[in-house]
């Protein structure tokens, strides 16, 4: 009888960044203009379409909205979907921080 070995298949404990910091795959990153972003402007939980559409789950439903750039792959869907056009995709080297 084979000893009970959890390590014979790819079953593991879920963790952020299982495959490493995938944010370094991208050339561009989303930059949010909070003077246009609905939750920041209204000061309450609203819109959050960026959170809904993000395929990577790196957008946080906070006021103001925050995006975890360590894992954002820079696909730009959030910028495409943002109703007030508060998100723009900028080249990494042009980002302020």
């Amino acid at each position: 009888m084979i000893k009970q070995d959890e390590n014979i298949s790819g079953i593991c404990t879920p963790a952020i960044g299982e495959a490493g910091k995938t944010g370094d795959w991208s050339d561009v990153k989303p930059a949010i203009d909070h003077s246009k972003c609905t939750p920041a402007v209204k000061g309450k939980a609203a819109c959050f379409l960026c959170w809904l559409y993000c395929p990577e789950g790196v957008v946080h439903m906070t006021i103001p909205v925050q995006i975890d750039l360590d894992y954002c792959k820079g696909c730009g869907i959030c910028a495409e979907e943002c109703p007030p056009n508060a998100i723009t995709m900028v080249r990494k080297e042009d980002m302020n921080e």
Partner: peptide, 24 residues
């Protein structure tokens, strides 16, 4: 070989990179 239990969530068959890896 692995019991799935809501108290101990599991990720099943994520992407494996070529090297050995650290778990959570």
């Amino acid at each position: 070989h692995t019991f799935l239990d809501p108290e101990r969530p599991r990720t099943i068959n994520p992407v494996f990179f070529p090297w050995r890896r650290e778990n959570a």
